[in-house]
Design a protein around this nucleic acid. Structure first.
Length: 318
DNA sequence: GCCGTTTTCGGCCCGACTGTTTTCAGTCG
């Protein structure tokens, strides 16, 4: 594992633990933000930090505090604050965070209310109907949790090599193109950016007419193992090949903006939104807006052009 | 914790979906 990957994971974990401890949300966001930035860097973070230091520059989103922690990690292989944070809560709480749709808030809830500090205890409590009585939880949440714990144990949640994702996605696209309501269909996400590994499959579609039959056909793809969510504009499933696939249905006039948005990277998008704001514009997955007026969105080139930028190939959007 | 400026502190991306509750919080991307 590269230093960038390790450090990104450490910052994510710090954010999780701070979240469980009820820390300031923006401090937490800063750590999550930094984790994203570092994960998206194309060269070792230590090199970049050194170069930036020499030039008296800095990496946006990395201030003095995080800068020092990165240096500490590169020199010693660990971060003292992280070690202390880990020691401050049971290790089982951190493990629970890897359960789908079970985040820091819920981890905190079951720990505080029921003293649950491991996946095993969580599973037992759910099986005994003890989770449904907690605030904000119910019968469905409990059933979903049990399924998620099962997935957590069996599902290969690791990212897949791009080539393997390609082999899974191609026949899925062929299947989807046969649905008559679908006009345009494009894969997005890290697959489109041709990252060496792909975490999940993002598919974008424009349709004519009713979206319901399209969403329906998507979740009924024979390779679907489990349906995670099914709405009128988006659906998420887990395929038998143990990878998540998301379909989003968008209006034709927003296709370019949506394709841009869902191609990412997240860090690239945050950067674009800032540029938009500086120009008095608003960028979303629906388009580029000046006030209430939409000035771009139908295609990607138009979106970048409206922001005064040249269209970058997806693989350069880190 | 970062950032910009208004320099000493206040604002920080945002929408879909779910399950819960009845207007919202949590999770995810």
């Amino acid at each position: 594992m590269s230093t960038n990957t390790e450090l990104s994971a450490v910052f994510s974990r710090i954010a999780d633990i701070l979240d469980i401890q009820g820390e300031n949300t923006f401090r937490i966001r800063a750590y999550r933000n930094a984790a994203q930035i570092i994960a998206g860097l194309s060269e070792p973070v230590s090199d970049l930090i050194c170069k930036a230091d020499e030039k008296g520059e800095k990496i946006p989103g990395i201030g003095k505090g995080l800068h020092d922690k990165i240096i500490e990690f590169c020199k010693t292989g660990k971060i003292k604050e992280y070690e202390e944070l880990r020691a401050s809560i049971p290790t089982g709480l951190i493990e629970m965070l890897d359960i789908q749709s079970f985040g820091p808030k819920r981890v905190k809830l079951v720990y505080n209310k029921l003293g649950i500090d491991s996946v095993e205890k969580l599973e037992k409590a759910a099986a005994e109907g003890k989770i449904r009585v907690l605030d904000g939880m119910g019968e469905k949440s409990e059933e979903k949790l049990l399924r998620s714990i099962r997935d957590f144990r069996t599902l290969q949640t690791d990212r897949k090599p791009w080539e393997e994702a390609d082999k899974i996605l191609k026949p899925f696209l062929v299947y989807l193109r046969k649905i008559k309501e679908i006009d345009k269909l494009e894969p997005a996400g890290s697959y489109r950016r041709k990252k060496s590994t792909v975490g999940d499959l993002d598919i974008l579609a424009t349709i004519s007419g009713d979206p319901i039959p399209v969403i329906d056909a998507f979740v009924k793809y024979p390779e679907v193992e489990e349906i995670l969510a099914q709405g009128s504009t988006k659906a998420s499933v887990i395929l038998k090949q143990k990878i998540q696939a998301d379909l989003r249905v968008v209006e034709p006039e927003s296709f370019g903006a949506a394709l841009q948005y869902f191609t990412g990277s997240k860090q690239h998008n945050i950067g674009l939104r800032k540029i938009a704001m500086e120009k008095g514009l608003k960028l979303s997955e629906y388009g580029v807006f000046r006030g209430a007026e939409k000035i771009a969105g139908e295609n990607e080139e138009g979106v970048y052009s409206a922001l005064g930028l040249k269209w970058p190939p997806p693989e350069e959007r880190e």
